[in-house]
Design a protein around this nucleic acid. Structure first.
Lengths: 160, 160
DNA sequence: GCATAATGCTATGTCACATAACAGTCAATC
DNA sequence: GATTGACTGTTATGTGACATAGCATTATGC
């Protein structure tokens, strides 16, 4: 056996992580907080917040969806969607309709007002995103979205 | 003036965002939550959490840093670092030393135990990251970190 | 028919995070 | 050189998102 230095740990890529900045999770967290603050500010004039917007968008993208299905899709707790739906309903943005064959389930359908509101909210958030991502090329933005989706859409039993 | 269709909005790239999945912020949030849960679980055996780890790493990376400087670097509130420092100090992971020329400031220095603990914590989080990013190539991981850093390190007066 | 599970919901706890205010110290200005 | 303002570390406290536990109702499997 030749007297070489012992094998360099494992991979050559496996440079030891020793600084906070080396952790993807650190940047993930900082970027997420940065985005969230901007999104909240952007939605303030519309008097709503990111999660209610996401819930309304779920109803619009999948008319007839149930609240439990929304919770699974968005990864939230059934208990927490109740006041959100209550407020969206009070604002006349969707309607509840009893399921024909299962009396436990409420099917949710967007109203015309709901679709208009969602479009307006999306425009506000889109403007915020354009500002947030202005230093990234269109290709980088697409790549970023793809990589992020690859992270959280792996072994979880649900996605959306 | 020629009778063409009016200019296609703005850019050709400017495809109207109309779904939740089109928003980078949505994936950012989901990925961040995914990572955070994993990081918290990974650090559980060491009886610590992501933020205290980040604080300790800040002290190690910049010996003599003050608590206010850590707060600016990590984007946290001065009030919230107090119990974190108290616990790290109680575990003997760093020492406070009075600044020579400014009696308001405590300079923080890591102990030997602190450096060992931080290395162990980083190893736990690194293992979590390796699992989280296993579907990404090394190049994709580097690119992701670069793009994320570009997002949150823009107009804020501080970074770190 | 009975056990199991799902839905929508209420009540409640927890925990991260922000705000407000404080005393002590420093620096700048008049 | 007294005063004003700013910064440090700290305490106390609020707030708001989120999870847990449990409920009545309904559906489904053996």
């Amino acid at each position: 056996m030749p007297l070489e230095k012992k094998q360099p740990e494992q991979d050559p890529e496996d440079a030891k992580i020793c600084r906070l900045q080396d952790l993807v999770g650190y940047h993930l967290r900082r970027a997420s907080v940065f985005d969230l603050q901007g999104a909240v500010s952007a939605l303030e004039p519309a008097n709503t917040r990111p999660v209610p917007m996401s819930v309304l968008l779920s109803i619009i993208e999948t008319p007839g969806i149930s609240s439990a299905e929304i919770c699974r899709a968005l990864g939230m707790q059934r208990a927490n969607i109740v006041p959100i739906l209550a407020e969206l309903e009070e604002r006349g943005l969707f309607l509840r309709e009893a399921d024909e064959s299962d009396q436990r389930i409420q099917r949710l359908f967007p109203t015309r007002r709901g679709e208009e509101a969602a479009a307006a909210w999306l425009a506000l958030v889109s403007e915020h995103e354009r500002s947030m991502l202005r230093r990234l090329t269109a290709e980088e933005q697409t790549e970023l979205r793809r990589l992020l989706a690859k992270i959280w859409q792996q072994d979880g039993p649900k996605q959306g």
